[in-house]
Write a protein that binds this DNA or RNA. Structure first.
Lengths: 245, 245
DNA sequence: GACGGCGTCAATGTATACACGAAGCTGCCG
DNA sequence: CGGCAGCTTCGTGTATACATTGACGCCGTC
């Protein structure tokens, strides 16, 4: 695989998993040493991450963007517009067999959620497959690209409510409703069920995130160890806020 | 200004203006010579254009993506989801003064459209300002980024119906309706008026584009002059279709 | 003591040299 | 005469050296 691709995947995964916390400073030389490639592929990776809105160029160095409470609301507003539309289109254009399979797997969600961490992973795999199936059924390249962009940011938020079993059980039920609407070919119901689901999800996310998640963990964590890159890191993201790319 | 930025702006403008037609092959060395910079900034520009979905990496060299009839429909599906939502949010959050000013200017649209090319430019400036005002009023960074992405592709399509005065006059009226709804704070009406506007716009666009606009003009036009880069250029875009980025 | 200007330095921006891979062409063999 | 194999060549991928910019801190002056 190309080095630039690997660098991008590595950094993106680390940001999404929270290994690189918001406020972390990513410098080209530093990262090129850490990842074992030259600056060129690192530059490419950082530019792509900027386009994704996961990092932001900030004067000197690029910093991992924070997700403020306000950002969560904004993201959900966009998600609702996109996913409701996608669900509606999927209901009109779906191949029933695809969603029938997902429906079967979704029925096992409650027992999966009782199984602990392993079950949790399998549950999220089902949800991801559902997202992919909707995106594929909607059969719209532009919409698909926009959806992947919001899913990127949603993944970061998901970590917050990951261990709220009560909510996850309810979410599984909402997903089932969406799948049933799509299987029934009812575009309006699929749209509205998605709207409901996202509303509940947002409510839960906001309840989970207390004051302001943006909270950078005091010191900026320069990824590599002994580098004294200690600067205050403003909570509000500078410049134009997150770019969905 | 940074060379990479200039290269990106130049290439993007040329693609949007149709100077670089769909199917044109953009090679790094070739472009670096033409633009008078080295390969590095050209690479950066091309990567950004790929992220924008304006070009696609295609085996040897990157080619300017074509817009198929199907792409137009897809784009309008996404536009409707995004812009209807944005108009609704703008109606809730707008500062009345901003839109009152645009409303005044929009009232002059019919006379502007009678003035020929110069008036046309001024008319499109008003429409662009309206888009910007809606985006600003919606006050949602994620939605804004998604909107800018679709506007990029819409600009390419707009060229097609640029000289249909009948349609432009009607569009001006539809825009006025949207502005009035926003001024009235009526989110639902603003949404639906946007839906209507885009529906009419799509209908017109599809009527204007006859068989398949993707039609690459026979030979791929290698931007620089005497280079015999003659390969057939497939009409359908390869790989994953346009990325909205 | 505070403000402004200048110098230093580090990190990014740019250029170029080198490496690798793929596609096309040519020549040989079946 | 056609197909395949090897070579050649062009183009992108990567690394590194050099240029430039902008930020930080120090010093001088008001």
């Amino acid at each position: 695989m190309r080095a630039g691709e690997r660098a991008y995947d590595t950094l993106r995964t680390e940001i999404l998993d929270g290994v690189l916390e918001p406020g972390s400073v990513l410098q080209e030389v530093e990262q090129s040493v850490r990842l074992g490639v030259s600056r060129t592929p690192v530059r490419e990776a950082l530019r792509r991450l900027i386009a994704d809105g996961l990092v932001a160029a900030s004067g000197r160095g690029t910093v991992v963007t924070a997700i403020s409470r306000n950002d969560i609301v904004s993201l959900y507003e966009l998600r609702e517009a996109l996913e409701a539309r996608a669900a509606g289109l999927a209901a009109q254009r779906r191949d029933a067999a695809d969603f029938a399979g997902i429906r079967e797997r979704l029925l096992e969600a409650p027992s999966l959620l009782a199984e602990g961490e392993a079950g949790l992973v399998r549950y999220f795999a089902i949800v991801d497959d559902l997202d992919d199936a909707i995106e594929a059924a909607a059969d719209n390249a532009f919409l698909g690209a926009a959806l992947r962009s919001v899913q990127l940011h949603s993944a970061r938020i998901r970590r917050l409510s990951r261990h709220n079993h009560e909510r996850l059980r309810a979410a599984a039920g909402e997903h089932l409703l969406i799948v049933d609407a799509i299987l029934a070919g009812d575009a309006e119901l699929a749209s509205h069920a998605t709207h409901v689901h996202l509303h509940m999800s947002l409510t839960n996310a906001l309840a989970t995130v207390p004051a302001d998640e943006a909270a950078p963990t005091a010191d900026p964590v320069p990824t590599a160890d002994p580098v004294p890159t200690a600067d205050p890191v403003p909570t509000a993201d500078p410049a134009g806020g997150p770019r969905v790319a």
